[in-house]
Design a protein around this nucleic acid. Structure first.
Lengths: 215, 215
DNA sequence: CTAAGCATCCCTGTTTTCAGGGAGGGCGTT
DNA sequence: AACGCCCTCCCTGAAAACAGGGATGCTTAG
């Protein structure tokens, strides 16, 4: 009999976790060896049981404390043989890009049907990558737009300003607070908007939240 | 043999739907007669199959188009014998209050474990109500804090406008989209700012996220 | 019936944001 | 030394947001 593929599931919504478990457990060739509600415990587990031959980690993004992006980065750096599949509610281009740069093996929206989940797992365990069509569409659209817009890793100062913007402060207030000219803050604001590909304060705020700069 | 309790599940995330199904299907006394991704279809189904004896509808809140709150209201008005259980990611006080006023039979966060889901269903089918402890806590805290801070329940229209604002749309764009005057949207924006006690677009956006109007 | 809340629309004026430029100095890498 | 990147500051003009009013009609609850 062929050995089962060992799988870890990570999601902070227990019910979803149980749902995934119920879907995967009946699969004869899969074995769930651990479930967790954030990345921290998985990291510990992998460090201790490095030789156990974990095949795949299925993870949510957007968990408190230690999210999927971070966990994926950790796994790919320290345990590159382990495959990773991200299952998330949101599918924004930036997140997917970050994940692909970090060599994630697959990405599914949470509204994908059970069948697609199983197919994705098979594909990934077979050594290939699997991205849902909707994700690919969004990603490509983002790629073409990316040519015009520069790279968007934010500097420390930019993050600081972004944080204050999202804290409902006006340009003038931020300037006073950081002992800078209001023109400087205006420049930052402008650069952030174009760098992050958003239209206005609302977009900046959402991004700040996504980055975890505020809550 | 005792008759099975007929259940309908409503959630726009297919994978979650499949998860719930996998949890509930093995239960010998439960029978899933329908799943849907929004309230609309359920409404139709109930109108046609009114006599089929549906026991319970398990629903997500926060679905596009026709959300759980609305569906609950419909069910309690037109088919009061059918029980309703809301399963949601967010647990803001206002939403829970609205639901309880509409006589919902139970409320669980999505991070509740499988066991609690089953227990909640049993409780509700037995004729009692079931609310997760965390929900009850939040609700009570909201009740006491309510004295100090003014009430901030948003009307449906207000939520709609708030959603569009947080989606990075300008006042003019929202006006066009809803076939309203831009003055109207400006009024809404103004009211929202004062109602929610925030200063600007950033605050509105954060609130919209907290309410789950956008992601 | 009456008051309250909701949805709609309007006005005046000020402040802030947004768009699209430019520009100089510092700092590290090649 | 030259290049890129970051941080800083400045300008103009248009668009949008914000503040603080008022007004109407229509439901709904008391």
């Amino acid at each position: 009999m062929q050995p089962k593929s060992k799988i870890i599931i990570v999601d902070d919504h227990k019910m979803f976790l149980d749902g995934l478990r119920s879907i995967l457990e009946p699969q004869p060739h899969l074995e769930i060896v651990m479930t967790a509600k954030n990345g921290q415990n998985v990291e510990k587990y992998l460090n201790i049981n490095a030789e156990e031959g974990i095949a795949l980690v299925v993870m949510d993004l957007n968990m408190p404390e230690y999210d999927g992006a971070e966990l994926n980065r950790f796994i790919k750096k320290n345990h590159p043989q382990i495959k990773t599949l991200v299952v998330s509610m949101l599918h924004d281009v930036q997140t997917v890009r970050t994940l692909t740069q970090d060599n994630v093996d697959g990405y599914l929206p949470k509204n994908a049907p059970k069948e697609e989940l199983l197919k994705a797992i098979e594909t990934i365990l077979g050594g290939e990558k699997y991205f849902a069509q909707t994700i690919k569409d969004a990603y490509l659209k983002g790629m073409t737009m990316q040519d015009a817009s520069p790279e968007q890793s934010l500097s420390k100062r930019e993050k600081e300003v972004l944080r204050l913007i999202a804290m409902e402060q006006t340009t003038q207030e931020i300037a006073d607070q950081l002992f800078l000219s209001k023109h400087t803050i205006e420049s930052y604001r402008k650069n952030l908007i174009s760098k992050l590909g958003v239209r206005n304060l609302a977009g900046l705020t959402k991004y700040a939240i996504k980055l975890g700069l505020i809550d």
